[in-house]
Design a protein around this nucleic acid. Structure first.
Length: 234
DNA sequence: CGGATTTGACCAGCGC
DNA sequence: GCGCTGGTCAAATCCG
């Protein structure tokens, strides 16, 4: 699995390099992060840093500031439909320092800084998805310079639906949530998150396997029957 | 009372 | 230079 995953990463890097060169030749229209990052149904730019490697070679100064942030990735969180909260429980402690209504999305965008450690440079932007208000789009920038603390437990207990997005074209939010084609730049994502992602992928594959679920069901029912028959014998 | 949140003001970058 | 926009600051407010 890991080998296949690494092979996919290489292919993705090559493709993104090609896209990057093409983008350099395109218009120098102002890079708006809200247009590129918040619109998860379009081509998402600035989340990965592939293009930054060609900066020195390119005669045109790259317009996207976000590319200078090498550790940016997105997390999509499914929330309760009635919930208006912009708080994403990911195990870290965040301090909100601003909120803004952006032009292309009527729902406000909240800005958070990691407060687990005073010098932690990580920032997080959270905004509801334009297409599906029950989905919170959290964009993380930077890398934590402290321990993960209770993140692992929290991510499981809060049933976070997450997907990491590189420079890919996404056609539907459901596709993201169902993780039909997970693509991410491995350098952009904390290793613990990668492990989490792989575990989830494995769990999904197993649960989608009818043979596995049937065997699991029979094993559980057998266990229960054994247990009840043992009790009856008592 | 101290820390977290809210929210209006301010700043910088970009297009025209 | 001006206006628009996203991002950040900081004083006011809230809350445990």
């Amino acid at each position: 699995m890991c080998e296949n995953y690494e092979a996919m990463q290489k292919q993705l890097s090559q493709l993104m390099n090609q896209n990057c060169e093409h983008q350099i030749q395109e218009s120098r229209k102002r890079k708006s992060e809200s247009e590129n990052c918040n619109n998860m149904f379009g081509t998402i730019k600035g989340i990965n840093n592939e293009c930054s490697t060609t900066d020195e070679e390119s005669p045109i100064k790259r317009p996207c500031r976000e590319i200078s942030s090498p550790k940016a990735y997105k997390v999509l969180v499914k929330t309760e439909a009635s919930s208006n909260s912009l708080y994403v429980m990911d195990g870290y402690q965040w301090r909100k320092y601003g909120q803004k209504v952006t032009r292309d999305n009527p729902s406000p965008r909240a800005y958070f800084r990691c407060s687990n450690a005073p010098s932690c440079p990580v920032k997080k932007k959270v905004q509801k998805s334009l297409e599906d208000p029950t989905i919170l789009v959290a964009t993380y920038e930077g890398e934590h310079n402290h321990g993960h603390e209770k993140a692992e437990i929290s991510m499981i207990s809060n049933q976070i639906e997450e997907s990491f997005i590189g420079s890919v074209h996404v056609t539907s939010p459901k596709q993201i949530i169902q993780r039909t084609s997970p693509t991410m730049k491995i350098d952009n994502v904390p290793k613990s998150s990668i492990q989490q992602f792989l575990v989830q992928q494995m769990a999904t594959s197993l649960t989608n396997d009818p043979n596995f679920t049937a065997a699991l069901a029979s094993a559980i029912s057998g266990r229960i029957l054994d247990h009840t028959s043992n009790k009856a014998n008592w």
